[in-house]
Amino acid sequence: MTKLHSVTQAKSQAKALRIALAAQGQPLTHAQALELIAHQNGSRDWNTLQARLSRSKQEPFTPNATVRGRYMSQPFTGRIVALAKVGKNTQISLQLDQPVDIVQFASFSNLRSHIRSVVGPDGRSPRKTSDGTPHLVIEIPSG
């Protein structure tokens, strides 16, 4: 089981649980699924788990989230397909909606549709181009 970092993740797990049990002929209400997820994560009930997750520091990135930003100075939109913590940073793997050309020369191209990089909590990669621009910048929604 993965550790929950947000209420959204908990609700997603509850939905997946409901779907899986329904496929096995064991229907479950959404409220019942939320309660089961709460118990699985060491909470007395859903309200307790929700309060604990709401108080915890929210991670800036979550699996399957839609993101936008710039890679090698090229704008992109895509989806987070994998995450791994690397100290204070995050190794992130993105599947882009449309490939981006990372070469700035007219004579040839290098299209990328999948990106794997390390970014800090601010969404910027520590690695930079020769002009000081981060290789990857992911826009983090405020709120």
Rank of each mutant, 00 (worst) to 15 (best):
Q91D: 11
Q58E: 09
A38P: 03
W46I: 09
F61I: 08
G42K: 08
K57V: 14
D97R: 00
L4T: 07
Q91T: 02
S73Q: 13
V67H: 00
P63I: 13
S56Y: 03
T77H: 06
T90Q: 03
D131G: 13
K88M: 00
L96E: 02
F61V: 08
G120L: 11
S54C: 02
I102F: 02
F105S: 15
T62D: 09
S130K: 14
V7G: 03
V119K: 09
F76Q: 04
P141S: 09
K57R: 14
T8G: 05
N47K: 14
S117Q: 15
K11N: 02
G87H: 04
R70N: 02
M1A: 11
T62Q: 08
S130W: 08
S93K: 10
R79L: 10
T48K: 07
R112C: 09
S130L: 14
M1K: 04
N47I: 08
S93L: 03
V100C: 02
S54W: 06
S73F: 07
Q58H: 10
R44W: 08
L21F: 06
A38Q: 06
S142R: 14
D101V: 09
R68H: 13
L96F: 06
I115W: 03
I80Y: 09
V137D: 05
A84C: 01
Q58P: 05
G42N: 08
S73T: 11
Q91E: 13
R124G: 08
Q91I: 00
E59R: 14
I138E: 08
Q91G: 00
R116N: 14
R127E: 15
E139M: 10
Q98V: 08
R44S: 12
K3N: 10
P134E: 11
P141H: 09
L36V: 07
A10T: 04
R127M: 14
F76Y: 01
T77I: 00
V7T: 09
Q95P: 00
A16W: 02
L28Y: 04
D131F: 12
V137Q: 11
H5Q: 07
R127A: 15
A33H: 07
K57H: 13
I92G: 01
T133H: 12
K3W: 00
T66K: 14
T90M: 08
W46K: 00
P63Q: 07
P60H: 07
I140D: 06
R127V: 15
